[in-house]
Amino acid sequence: MAQSIRSDHAPRSVPRLSGPGTARERLGTFVRRHKLAPYLLLAPALIGIALVLLWPLAQVAIYSFQNYGLAQITGVLPAQWVGFANFSTTFTDPEFWLSLRNSLLFAIVAVPLTLLVGTIVGLLLNRLGKKMSIFVSTAALLAWATPPVSASVLFYWMFNPDGGIVDWALARMPHWLVGGTDWAGYNWATNGPVQAYTMIAILVVWQAFPFVAVTLLAGLKTIPAELTEAARVDGASPWRVFRRITFPLLKPIYLVLLLLSVIWDFNIFTQSYIIISLGNQNEYNLSMYIYDKAFGFPPSYGLGGALALIFALILLVVTVGYVRASIRQGALT
């Protein structure tokens, strides 16, 4: 192997070596002979990723076995190894299980809802005339473009008990439709996890369905029209066409969208931080629980580290699935 590489490059490097050569040329020859070019090109990006993404992850793992807190950050006391104490504290804390439950339930509801709405809009965009399709996709684009912070503040206002449009509308709807609750001045953010996450789910679906719709539309365009046309002529219902033709063909895209949505929805922090705000422990999701443990008072980076590690491991399982799906779709080719 090494032999063949050298012989490959011998003819090209020989004429250059024969001249006296400036320092610059000699450096070039050195890079070529040792095939350093790809490594040199990669180095800046990889150093950045290593220092900002990988090393902190390793540090978090280290902190999770230490009692890193206020005394350590101010330099009063050195950090001590505490074994699995942070993990046992976590696993015996009912708030941890509550926040994990909130995170899981939220993902279980929000992910299928996002995919469903995205599918409906994607199929619709594929069937609509040009003008209407541009109108719908522009609306979707604007929802997608709204920064999460703006969207969260905006939905908080719409669902606000004082002057919010949602409570106003619900209070004017017939009881058989919206239940017997007194909706006027109803507080969605603090009345409990179900109410808060209903609001966040609507917000997240609103922001995420455009991506699903647009991605599916790109996939739908690759399906030959004759295929679905033929099925329809043969009398297949639209649902049957979707189930037997469209869905099987788009399955790889669906898998990637599913895994991405699971990761995103399990992760949400910005929306829940703004809408729920720190202090409402019974409405925490995992992200907020971690943040509160680490940066609350007193700060406990060790406990936060243990939690972050657990969090990262849960996500790693989904991520491995996502990577496998991407590779199977030909990402590496």
Binding site: I73, F269, V323
Partner: peptide, 30 residues
């Protein structure tokens, strides 16, 4: 370029991309 660990690197990038900010923020802050 073809080089050693090229495919590994690409897969690693896919995984790294998914590390949530919440998991790193403690170490980044310190």
């Amino acid at each position: 370029f073809r080089f050693r660990l090229r495919t590994t690197l690409l897969v690693l990038l896919l995984i790294v991309q998914m590390i949530p900010g919440q998991a790193l923020i403690i170490a980044l802050f310190l």
